[in-house]
Amino acid sequence: MLELRLTRAGLLKKVLESIRDLVTDANFDCAATGCSLQAMDSSRVAMLSLLLRPDGFEHYRCDRNISMGMNLANMARMLRCASDDDTVTINADDAQDKISDYEMKLMHITSENLEIPEAGYEAIVKMPASLFARICKDLGTIGDTVMISVTKEGIQFFTRGDIRTANIFCRKTTPVAKEKEAISIEMEKPVSLTLALRYLISFTKATPLAKQVTISMSYGRPIVVEYKMEIMDHIRFYLVPKVEE
């Protein structure tokens, strides 16, 4: 038996909006420890992982682990019927073929869950989520890829298009900066990675969920773009860097 109740449907809507460009169908794996989702995009170069903590819900009951395969576009369509401050309830019985209230058909999705190590990144940048979104959007009008370089002074975004180049440098702020403006850098050594802008732009759909975004980078590893939600834990996006050959 699974019962989830959230008094702010808007939060679930924002979560869905932030992932449905990247992934069409996904398994919500619900357990006593929370609801998690891990899914790859169709080209398998990007991935997302999501955790919704039980204490983020007004009511959370999950008697045994249950995996709900859902079409995210259908789920978003149904949630559009709820306004942001409406209460949404998701029930799934042990028959596991629908969630009631919405009576949405569940799917069987074969997915491979991957073990993702969290630590050991060479450079970690925290910056305002809205600033990161604006930079990705602006550079996306110029080039297809962006080179993100982190040094102890700041984070640099460079792109090259058919007709011009663009370079944006964001300097690390002082410790007294306001949270919504702060840019902080933890770095073992400078890192520079080239990434497809269309994926980064898709990740920034999660901007309404958090004030700050955390970007973790290491050579030879996928970049991690993380949004920490105030009451629901996190959503993380992973993208394989492009390698010049």
């Binding site: 790859m40 170069v45 991935m47 991957l114 394989v240 390698v243």
Partner: peptide, 14 residues
């Protein structure tokens, strides 16, 4: 040429 591997090659299966 820009080469891009799949994300599955970076992580092990659970």
């Amino acid at each position: 040429v820009n080469q891009q591997s799949q994300i599955t090659s970076f992580f092990s299966k659970k």
